[in-house]
Design a binder for these strands. Structure first.
Length: 483
RNA sequence: GCUCCGGUAGUGUAGUCCGGCCAAUCAUUCCGGCCUUUCGAGCCGAAGACCCGGGUUCAAAUCCCGGCCGGAGCACCA
């Protein structure tokens, strides 16, 4: 029996009655392209089956992956921009009392114990599949020690609460994992209100149950996490949600990156900000003029396979081009401008269409006997050679250095008959433009009308699509999207 | 060392659970050609893959075993 081919995302097991799904980042930086995948796929399933999409901040490490206060808002902004407004926002660091309650119940149920081994000692025992001396403590003893952890008579490193699993489990990764540890470093949000913080496996597992999450999408690297968490669910008599794993994602254009590494590079001054054109963040893509629909389409087509994948931004760019091409005005931008003197009849003003196929009207560009052409086109400007300046006139080059030509007509049909190469140009009185690209910065002169396009995505003809980021008194800054 | 997961064209992806419709889907990329006053868009065409070896079967991308390759976990990180 064969099924019809699925298009888009694969069916979710048991989702027919609606789903509750969450995206659960640590806000230690802004959302990256990888985060976008989580945001988009989770919210896409909720759209498809109905239900609730939750945004939960797993911000329970004040030290190693210290949350950034600004990042909470960034996630909200980027979710909204991606068309995934959460139905509810949960912040783990606001909810420690809830976790304490459950921890206590777990202790009384005999599912957890306070371990006072030092880290290395416990690891040695664990690797030998041997129980530590504290494993046999009674619930009463454990509860007393747990109180000491919370009340402060035990210091960091002196005790952790462990969930009992199977100390002889063949996979060492699953043996008696730590659920809480003592941290006295103040939390960016909670300050020094708490000194006992849950670890991911406890916090995430408990929240998923509390929130009624039905389906969890997470990285393959967290497969063991699930197996660990199931012990907790068994102790508590809870039912574990359905899980789906996906492989690691690597992007050709950005290589491997981690939020922590990006943060260090940023702090070292290597980037202008989290929305630097070179950054693999959602905000950087937005600034460059990538449309959210392009990202959604791309992510849905990627699917949710367990294979580790290495993707290229080319596919995102292709999707984006389809969206942006029909609406982007055309503009002239000349990179590395060189002056060109033209003898003869050159129109004082060029009238050029804003779009090659759509009727978006015409723009007027001041021209005259002196224009600028790009250094990239110099190789086509040889003495005796002729070409067409797009929307202006046809010329024959009479000299290089300095560059000089004579006008040989304005008719585009003539150019066509002569099979002239067509290049673009800019007026000397144009506006200086800087283009911030993932691979560097281009500078040049653009037609003055670009000043009207602030915030818009336009196409610099024969150069690529850009978003006009800012227009100041004497300069325009554009962010490069793609060709 | 122990444990877990994966391997379909350059890159992704469908098909794998329930073997035959798969001489293998779609997208992107690349290469030709057409069209176009942009090196953009559009149109047409082409190239390109089941990791390897055994086994089961009338029949294997699909099931089984072994190998190889890749990724991950074994944190008081997420």
């Amino acid at each position: 029996m064969k099924k019809e081919p699925e298009k888009g995302l694969p069916r979710l097991e048991g989702a027919e009655g609606g789903v509750v799904m969450r995206f659960a980042p640590n806000p230690n930086g802004p959302p990256t392209i990888g985060s976008a995948r989580g945001i988009i796929i989770n919210s896409e399933y909720v759209k498809r089956y109905g239900g609730r999409f939750l945004l939960r901040f797993d911000d329970t490490d004040p030290v190693n992956k210290r949350p950034m206060p600004e990042a909470y808002g960034w996630y909200l902004e980027d979710c909204q921009w991606l068309g995934a407004v959460p139905d509810e926002v949960i912040v783990a660091s606001d909810r420690l009392p809830l976790y304490y309650e459950i921890a206590e119940e777990l202790i009384w149920r005999g599912g957890a114990y306070v371990c006072r081994c030092d880290q290395a000692a416990f690891k040695a025992l664990k690797d030998a599949a041997a129980a530590c001396p504290h494993r046999g403590q009674s619930p009463q003893e454990n509860n007393a020690l747990w109180r000491e952890m919370i009340e402060g008579s035990l210091g960091p490193g002196e005790a952790v609460l462990r969930v009992k699993t199977d100390i002889v489990h063949k996979d060492p990764a699953l043996r008696d994992w730590a659920a809480f540890r003592i941290v006295t470093t103040p939390h960016p949000r909670a300050g020094d209100k708490y000194r006992v913080w849950p670890l991911l496996d406890f916090e995430s597992a408990v929240e998923d149950h509390l929130l009624g999450v039905t389906h969890i999408l997470r990285g393959k690297d967290l497969m063991d996490s699930e197996r660990r968490q199931r012990y907790l669910y068994d102790h508590m008599g809870w039912e574990y949600p359905t899980t789906i794993h996906w492989g690691r994602i690597k992007i050709h254009q950005f290589g491997s990156f981690s939020t922590s590494a990006l943060r260090r590079a940023l702090e070292a001054g290597e980037y202008s900000g989290w929305d630097d054109a070179r950054m693999p963040t959602v905000r950087a893509l937005r600034r460059r003029g990538i449309r959210p629909e392009a990202l959604r389409k791309f992510m849905v087509e990627l699917g949710v396979g367990e294979t580790d994948i290495s993707i290229s931004m080319d596919s995102v760019y292709a999707e984006n081009r389809k969206i942006v091409d029909p609406m982007a005005k055309r503009r002239f931008f000349v990179k590395d401008p060189h002056p060109l003197e033209i003898d003869g009849d050159v129109p004082e003003v060029a009238k050029a269409p804003f779009h090659p196929t759509l009727d978006l009207g015409l723009r007027e560009i001041p021209a005259g006997p002196r224009v600028l052409v790009s250094a990239d086109d110099l190789s086509d400007l040889k003495v005796g050679g002729s070409l067409r300046l797009k929307d202006l006139c046809n010329i024959e080059v009479v000299a290089t250095a300095p560059l000089r030509a004579r006008a040989i007509g304005t008719d585009p049909h003539q150019a066509k008959e002569m099979r002239l190469r067509i290049i673009h140009w800019a007026p000397p009185a144009g506006v200086p433009v800087r283009v911030m690209r993932p691979d560097g910065v281009d500078a040049g002169i653009g037609e003055a009308g670009i000043r009207e396009d602030e915030g818009k995505v336009v196409q610099f003809e024969r150069y690529g699509f850009v978003r006009i980021d800012s227009v100041s008194g004497d300069e325009v800054v554009a962010y490069f999207a793609h060709r």
